[in-house]
Design a protein around this nucleic acid. Structure first.
Lengths: 326, 326
DNA sequence: GAAGGGCGTGAGAGCGCTCTCCCAATCCTG
DNA sequence: CAGGATTGGGAGAGCGCTCTCACGCCCTTC
């Protein structure tokens, strides 16, 4: 199994290496007969371009990174497969590799090195810690980055997000439409944009809602719901800011003798797998994760091809998925 | 922001490029003072080796692929984050990239190309379709591959798996210990090794168990359980061959007026997130996914460094996680 | 004190590709 | 039909790195 080089293809086709290269890269100006000869040579020799060599001269790695939080935080996030799928869809046809990096000590530094030494053309940052200095460093260095989700502090960085505020409002309208009279919400962490926006959007729609805080974890959903039915026993509608929390909260309602949705309507957020493994299945706010991921990839590619293009924010509209819980 | 090359480092350190290279790659025989000078030059210039150039001459991409089934099948699998995490743990300290590829039309062919043109040093195959010819082609071509899970047909390929048979036996013993008298199992698909082994292992322990077939999906768990309580109403213990199916099956029991675990004990398999989002939480058979993934990475690396090393099977022992369902 | 053996170092040849010249051939225009 | 404009193709210079090879130095040994 010997390696076939462009040189060999050229020899077989009876042209120069330059012309063979033109054909491989689809350059315009090659005579049709020569193009044909080269293509025949390529398939007869089984030629595959050596990416390392190409990368060395073009200074493109043809690879992008996906920076994820560590396993633990990720387990709460049901979206990994969808994100990967969306990015892949855009990136694969271009022959670009998707490199996964999970946060650990030094991961982000590693990603920066990979970017700077040309091993990665750009990165998508998921679930970035608001205090993380890396996004700032990256944009300062003019390196292509896209954030999943609005950054906590406004900064000139491209990001893709769902309209969290509107999603929460959707949930609020649903509960009102169900004639709920005593409405509450279990929030996400208030030091994250998603947590903030979902609360704000919900309050805009249901200003007198009872507010209990959670942190997006299932356990916090349990605790918050226990607190809620203690302090507000007549609650009949609750917007839980993540499906995972809702999944924890519903059994608490059941144990307290309340039926879902008859006594208490529950609306979640995310349309994650937890929405389907809940009993009853969750009515929830859906984010088009795969499409959003694809858009992140597109935005990143744009930045790679046009280095100095301005930061953009792309915001997707959420939708309400009505199931059995409310 | 200009690129620093080894040439420049060498100039700053007052040595030749060769010596600088030796220091970068930790070669032994370099005089201590020169080594120091080079190291100082490296940090003062902020040198980062260009992987493409290195890769071109060493013929190593320093990247491995993780081939996954498509999003749809993946959603059923809760393990993606754990697998990535385990592989990353082994691979990152070595500066090796993990490239994710999701199955789609042509993905596997793409992976083969990447392997053959030296863009990937090896691949880990997850959830391979038994009919897929790719694993066979890869080993025939002598390319480094590791399978997640035993192949359906015996073949000379390295794989890492959990002792499925023993795991199912663990579940059987648990149900017997709980004094269940009428025991059943909801199986996985019988055209997969995992589906087969879990049934065989369970039957070895509980030969007179009632068998209802499922296919690992949540919906099939619902259907199977409905069938089970119809044809065998006095069932008081059931081993469901995946947590996701168990998650669907338990509400069926509840709706039929049976309490879990009081009337019917349920034991699942996987210890996936579905085990925790079930109500009550699932007693289940745990696979050490992260460790298994790490082992896959190690096996792959071994194959990469020792191309003709023999195929190995590494089998991990499962454990029973006792929670509330049985 | 001369000859032999290490060991550390430098020179230089590539790895396979792209891309910029530059030249030759063709086409158009006056 | 001559001159310029246009176009396609080839030669060759690198991209940044590793690694072989040969050389020089120092230490040993007789």
């Amino acid at each position: 199994m010997k390696r076939v080089t462009l040189e060999e293809v050229a020899r077989v086709a009876g042209v120069s290496r330059a012309t063979a290269s033109r054909v491989v890269n689809g350059a315009s100006s090659v005579d049709e007969s020569l193009r044909h000869a080269v293509q025949k040579a390529i398939s007869s020799t089984g030629y595959l371009p050596n990416i390392a060599a190409r990368s060395l001269v073009t200074r493109r790695a043809a690879a992008i990174g996906l920076l994820l939080p560590d396993e633990h935080r990720m387990n709460g996030d049901p979206h990994l497969a969808s994100v990967v799928s969306g990015v892949t869809r855009v990136v694969r046809p271009l022959g670009i590799h998707l490199v996964l990096m999970m946060t650990g000590p030094g991961t982000r530094a590693q990603a920066m090195s990979d970017l700077r030494c040309g091993r990665l053309d750009g990165v998508i940052l998921v679930h970035t810690d608001p205090a993380d200095p890396v996004p700032g460093q990256l944009i300062a260095a003019g390196l292509p980055v896209v954030l999943a989700g609005r950054p906590l502090k406004p900064m000139p960085i491209t990001y893709v997000d769902v309209n969290q505020t509107e999603g929460a409002a959707l949930a609020g309208r649903r509960l009102k439409a169900l004639q709920c009279r005593r409405i509450a919400t279990i929030t996400g962490p208030q030091d994250t944009p998603a947590g903030q926006d979902r609360l704000a959007g919900f309050l805009a729609e249901v200003p007198d809602a009872v507010v209990v805080h959670g942190d997006f974890t299932r356990q916090s959903g349990i605790t918050a719901m226990e607190k809620l039915i203690r302090c507000c026993p007549d609650v009949d509608g609750v917007f839980v800011a993540s499906d995972l929390m809702a999944n924890g909260a519903i059994p608490v309602l059941h144990r307290s003798g309340r039926k879902v949705p008859d006594d208490v309507a529950v609306v979640g957020f995310d349309d994650s797998s937890a929405a389907l493994t809940s009993e009853p299945e969750l009515t929830t706010v859906r984010q088009p994760i795969t499409d959003m991921a694809a858009e992140m990839a597109r935005q990143l590619l744009r930045q790679i091809t046009e280095p100095r293009s301005p930061a953009t924010a792309v915001v997707f509209e959420p939708s309400l998925v009505v199931r059995d819980s409310g």
